[in-house]
Design a protein around this nucleic acid. Structure first.
Lengths: 205, 205
DNA sequence: GTTGCGCCGGACATAGTGTCCGGACGAGCT
DNA sequence: AGCTCGTCCGGACACTATGTCCGGCGCAAC
């Protein structure tokens, strides 16, 4: 089900509420490398220092918690999607990718959890798809404009190209973040940008 | 744990054993769109028409079952990896992708299940990574050869490029198979091939 | 007929989920 | 001071699923 938006305590009294404690504890555990699926409510509660029943007073279930974690994450890095201009040149593209790499590294734990649950839970999958759709839409629009301007060949299949870019790109970035050291990020971002530029936009080498 | 290889009955008697029944039933349910994670052993047993205890007589657990499903799948389409020659030209590349698309469509259900469990189970993740590593190795070798022959620029980062190709490509293909109709496969395969050819190999347009 | 084998069906221990409720504690109000 | 409200604790409860175990049944082979 959809998670219900919860209002915070009207008074400013408590420095940290149980809810914040739970969110922080979950982030902590996930950062430690644990799988969200294998995580128990009990375990989270203990780590957060609250009773198990308190967990259910704030979150409908584990999915609700994950959705809160994910929306909080998006709220702190909302500009990433809107700042993404896919046709500003090769160097600009590489820069944008590097910035996205940074965001991914920062929120790797939550991103991993979302990617995990999205594979078997419809609610989370829809949530994430909706986020990626932003990128897909922008990419298709940009490609269409490039074609209209005659800079990209007309035979480029917009939908397929966007799929390769967004779905494939997201996965490659995720893989880079989870398996390669941050020092390789710049080289990877450049390679990804070049693949786009020459492969998808078909700009002459 | 690693799944233990099971020997079949020495006699040729039974036309269909309970084991085959379970494997078929699972494939059937998965094809119906259900999530493997949400699948219970009970449910599988009922669909297979065997007792729940019989399931455990043949499979250590659900993971063991999935691994059996996956290896059986690889056994019937083993040639895909070895027939893949990433540098035989643009048209050949598109053909190869189209063939892979076909295999993906054929085994979409099991592939989805593997992708699902791989996100939270180490055993399955390792299994799948090992399969993809084949493609990664071949890709790196091919790119190196292209560079040596002077057809691909020396500034191409081999590891990053292979990551974009294999990880990103696999995801894009998976997305295509699960969200687009088969009639679009040819156009998608061509687009993917062109992205490789011009974007990764940097062949002049 | 007896033995071996695959399967059934159910009991069992264990563990996790989500709900519910009595009661403790503290902050703010009158 | 006493009162009340909101938050949290701690534990009971029903339910579901997992994995193990074992007695017994039926069918084939020798």
């Amino acid at each position: 089900m959809a998670s219900i938006t919860r209002r915070r305590a009207p008074k400013v009294s408590r420095p940290v509420s149980a809810e914040d404690e739970i969110l922080a504890a979950t982030r902590r555990i996930l950062t430690g490398g644990a799988s969200f699926t294998d995580l128990g409510v009990q375990q989270i509660s203990v780590e957060a220092g609250v009773a198990r029943s308190t967990f259910y007073a704030h979150f409908r279930d584990k999915t609700d918690l994950l959705l809160r974690l994910a929306t909080d994450m998006l709220a702190t890095s909302f500009d990433v999607a809107s700042a993404w201009e896919p046709t500003d040149g090769l160097d600009k593209l590489a820069e944008d990718f590097l910035r996205i790499l940074g965001v991914y590294r920062e929120h790797a734990a939550v991103l991993r959890a979302v990617g995990e649950v999205a594979t078997y839970d419809l609610t989370v999958r829809d949530f994430w798809s909706q986020g990626l759709a932003q990128f897909t839409d922008r990419t298709i629009a940009a490609l269409r404009a490039e074609q209209a301007a005659g800079r990209t060949p007309a035979d480029v299949n917009l939908v397929s190209a966007a799929r390769v870019i967004v779905q494939g790109g997201e996965r490659a970035i995720f893989d880079q973040v989870t398996t390669a050291p941050p020092t390789d990020d710049a080289a990877f971002a450049r390679e990804l940008a070049q693949t786009w530029w020459y492969g998808v936009y078909r700009r002459p080498a």
